[in-house]
Design a protein around this nucleic acid. Structure first.
Length: 883
DNA sequence: ATGGTCACG
DNA sequence: ACGTACGTGACCATT
């Protein structure tokens, strides 16, 4: 049997873990004041890798000290590095103790780095033959060890997200073989390890040279073939440095190690030692996991409960002020899912049943519909809809654990009571996955005692956590956001979902048959042009045809092959007629599968309507999302697709579809929160903001007409600003050069200095607080804002700029919807859909004149900004006609 | 399950 | 030198 050897670079993983949790460092201290963040992060990584890889043998290698054979040959090796912070160095002994308790061997060797130990052991394992080797590290340099038998996993984000390097992946990503990585480094040196290569040679040049010559040796033997006079000079001058860099970069695979492969067997956790260790470190979640992993999950603290029956239901009258309630459904989609049970109670009185007919028992119903008795639930909207289907109107929901958890931290969210409870430090409840299983194996045995127990544990978790979570909410200044926006909108959304929107299947079907014919025609043409039949829907097969058979130029690659995305194909269209046909085919196939067939599948037979679900606790910005079906991405940009909207009709004949949208809400929010006078003036004066921007950044006099092209460019810049712009991004998106893009952005910031200042300030705020906020105090954490990785940090910075804008716009429309529900509650008009900045209604004729004024006025008065909000309305007999 | 593609704001 | 616009969901092919 083949063995699997896991080799971990202890120092580099510890460093990664430490810096990944750097901003949260103060939260990770144990009772004796020891920092534990790196220990914690290290253990998270271990858990992940041990479960994913299931190794038979494991070793963690550490660096032995500052001096190594590398510092001997080059004194400045890794010179100039900041001293390891004491908060980290104090953790190393404990990491080693952790590894010991987990049954894992550690090793270090004087004069050698962890890399060399790993390289040496990997080599021995490869030679021994019956090993597969997995290396885990935070350092890309180790990818040079990649081979058929050895994969290298490099942590990319945090400590648990790893990128796996196989020889193939190295070649695709770096353009060279694993063994050539050191050749590249020999030429360009390594800044972080502080040794130089050849002057003026960076990644690009090094890559080109190595692709041409294979190795540094061969390069110098054929130095005459190097093109470029200057480059040749530098190469000749720095040959010694290049050779030294090459040696420094090369991992020593013959280190005189004193462990052998036979010593590395993975022993597994020593539960006793590990429990003691976790307790000393204060690792609650790991402790909880230990008991679960060890199948101690049954020794959860038992909760006394009563099985509810029609006979004992009178006992429920004891609850006078407050209960926690949980309604269990077996499926995700609560519009159609069977109801399988419910539990309720408070303190130490708990009732549970799998008989949902009891929902209509008077004593139960009285509790649920009472406006005097507070209800604590998990997912108010789901609960409301489920009960509504039984004819019960749930009233007075005070605490929605899901919603509060989402507001406290939009990341790590889950729709599972157990998972959310664990997140907040309460462990006396299992996750649904633990009880019901997952994927194809998921089953709910409603007759089993475990099922009842699980529901009781869930409802008690809600009860136990609500005080503390409300307190956290208050500390975040989010109580108002919760009480005045989120919990209210939950019920507004519930009603919109229950109401649904009518979709005419006949319209879709007749469009579908036309699409089907056209697809068949285009398909035949494509086959002829290709000279063979293939699956046009497969990017892989299409790539083969376009780039191998027809030899079209490869403009972009993806991780797995050639990119065949629209922007690529549009550039290729003039070269070959087949490309335009593929584009057309794709467009129609998309419409057919997603919008014709997809929508037809979800129309309810009884009412000819679709009932979407809005996910209220998903997005990182506070927007809603829509599923089953997604009604927030019905085509509009192309006329062909837009026709789909003809199928969306009012539910009563003679009514109209009425749509109102906020005009440029994000830019108005931007003008308001940045306090930029120039941009505010533009909106106050009712100017065309893109034209005004064009005039400003292109320096046109105010009387000169703005050409459509300049306006288009200015519009792109405005969008870019909202997204947290980069010159590259802007140039990609508009087809201008990067230099021009850079100039435009500079001009923009000169003309809108308030915007510039805001962008700088908000990033600074994020660096200091690790989160940003919207107008309504919706919060988004940005853990990567101080990351050392340029990529992650840049992304966090753009997010810091974008989230307050996108999120505040989301706040505003939510407020408008709450006010709207109230404004139309006595009318027949129904609010049907929300699409981020627009609301869609169905309206009877006699109310048309009223709503034309009412709806926009409710929307534009939702909030007072420093600029006016503008709302535009359209209406017609279908959604298509409301334009 | 994941990645590519494409629909929307 | 880095390697790039923000937020989503559904479908298909592929693993």
């Amino acid at each position: 049997m083949t063995k699997k050897l896991l080799l971990i670079d202890g120092n580099s993983v510890a460093f990664k873990a430490f810096y990944a949790l750097y901003t949260a460092m103060d939260k990770f201290t144990n009772s004796s004041g020891l920092h534990t963040s790196a220990i914690y992060g290290f253990n998270r990584m271990l858990d992940k890798v041990l479960t994913d890889e299931k190794p038979t043998d494991v070793l963690v290698a550490f660096d032995a000290g500052k001096t190594t054979f590398r510092t001997e040959m080059y004194a400045d090796y890794k010179g100039g590095r900041a001293k390891t912070p004491t908060e980290l160095s104090e953790q190393f002994p404990f990491i080693k103790e952790l590894l010991n308790s987990r049954g894992i061997q550690t090793y270090e060797l004087k004069n050698y780095e962890a890399d060399d130990i790993i390289g040496t052991l990997a080599k021995k394992a490869e030679e021994a033959g019956d090993y597969q080797v997995v290396i885990v590290t935070g350092d890309r340099d180790l990818t040079q060890l990649t081979s058929d038998k050895t994969t290298v996993q490099v942590s990319v984000k945090g400590v648990t997200e790893l990128e796996t390097y196989t020889p193939k992946h190295v070649e695709e990503k770096l353009g060279v073989k694993p063994s050539q990585i050191i050749e590249i480094k020999g030429l360009k040196g390594d800044n972080s390890d502080n040794y130089p290569g050849v002057e003026k040679v960076g990644d690009k040049t090094a890559l080109k040279l190595i692709q041409q010559f294979g190795t540094i040796d061969n390069l110098y033997q054929n130095i005459d073939q190097v093109s470029g006079k200057k480059l040749k000079e530098h190469l000749i001058n720095d040959q010694k440095q290049a050779e030294r860099a090459h040696t420094l970069a090369t991992i020593n695979r013959e280190a005189p190690i004193t462990v052998s492969l036979d010593d590395l067997k993975y022993q597994g956790d020593d539960i006793e030692k590990l429990t003691d260790f976790y307790e000393r470190m204060g690792f609650k979640s790991f402790l909880a996991k230990l008991s679960v992993d060890d199948d101690h999950s049954d020794d959860q603290e038992a909760i006394k409960y009563t099985v509810l029956t029609a006979d004992n239901a009178t006992e429920l009258d004891q609850f006078k002020d407050e209960i926690s309630f949980h309604l269990e459904m077996s499926e995700e989609n609560y519009h159609i899912s069977p109801l399988v049970g419910f539990a309720l109670g408070q303190g130490d009185k708990w009732y549970v049943t799998n008989n949902c007919e009891l929902l209509n028992n008077d004593h139960v119903k009285k509790l649920l519909t009472s406006s005097k008795i507070k209800k604590n639930v998990f997912d108010a909207k789901r609960t409301y809809v489920g009960l509504y289907r039984q004819g019960i109107k749930l009233a007075y929901v005070d605490f929605d654990m899901l919603l509060v958890s989402y507001l406290l931290n939009t990341t790590n969210n889950s729709n599972d009571v157990g998972t959310v409870a664990h997140l907040h430090g309460y462990y006396n409840v299992k996750t649904d996955e633990e009880v019901y299983g997952k994927g194809a194996k998921r089953t709910i045995d409603t007759e089993s005692p475990e099922f009842l127990t699980h529901m009781v544990h869930k409802v008690k978790a809600i009860d136990q956590l609500h005080d503390e979570m409300f307190k956290d909410l208050d500390e975040h200044n989010q109580t108002k956001l919760y009480r005045e926006i989120e919990i209210k909108i939950a019920f507004v959304l519930a009603h919109m979902e229950i109401n649904g929107i009518k979709v005419d299947s006949a319209t879709l079907e007749s469009m579908g048959s036309k699409f089907k014919e056209r697809l068949a025609e285009i398909q035949q043409t494509i086959y002829q042009e290709a000279g063979e039949e293939f699956n046009i829907g497969s990017p892989k097969q299409l790539g083969k045809i376009l780039f191998e058979k027809l030899r079209l130029p490869i403009l972009k690659k993806t991780k797995t092959g050639y990119s065949t995305s629209v922007d690529v194909l549009e550039k290729l269209a003039p070269d070959a007629p087949i490309v335009q046909n593929v584009l057309n085919y794709r467009q129609i196939a998309k419409l057919q599968s997603t919008y014709i067939d997809g929508l037809l599948k979800v129309i309810h037979k009884d009412d000819s309507k679709v009932h979407t679900r809005y996910l209220q606790t998903l997005t990182q910005t506070g927007r809603l999302s829509s599923v089953d079906p997604n009604l927030q991405n019905i085509p509009v940009r192309s006329e062909e697709g837009r026709l789909i909207r003809q199928a969306f009709i009012p539910s009563h004949s003679g009514w109209q579809i009425f749509s109102s949208d906020y005009s440029q809400i994000e830019l108005r929010v931007l003008a308001s929160i940045t306090n930029d006078k120039n941009m505010q003036d533009a909106f106050k004066n009712g100017e065309d903001i893109h034209a005004t921007t064009a005039r400003r950044i292109f320096g046109l006099p105010s009387n000169e007409e703005v050409t459509p092209d300049l306006r288009r460019q200015a519009k792109a810049v405005n969008f870019g600003i909202v997204y947290g712009i980069s010159d590259f991004g802007l140039s990609q998106n508009t087809g201008i050069t990067r230099k021009q893009a850079h100039q435009f952005i500079q001009r923009y910031f000169e003309e809108y200095p308030g915007v510039k200042k805001y962008m700088e300030d908000i990033v600074e705020f994020a660096r200091n607080h690790r989160y940003v906020e919207t107008i309504a105090h919706r919060r988004r954490y940005l853990p990567d804002i101080n990351s050392k990785s340029f990529n992650l940090r840049s992304f966090a910075e753009r997010t810091a700029m974008n989230t307050p804008i996108q999120g505040s716009a989301a706040d505003i429309i939510k407020i408008a919807m709450i006010n709207m529900a109230d404004a139309i509650k006595e009318m027949k008009t129904r609010m049907l859909l929300q699409v981020h900045d627009e609301l869609i209604f169905e309206v009877p004729d006699e109310e048309m004149e009223t709503v034309k004024k009412l709806i926009p006025s409710v929307m534009d008065s939702a909030i007072k900004l420093h600029v006016p909000l503008k709302v535009e309305s359209h209406w017609g007999k279908t959604w298509y006609d409301a334009k």
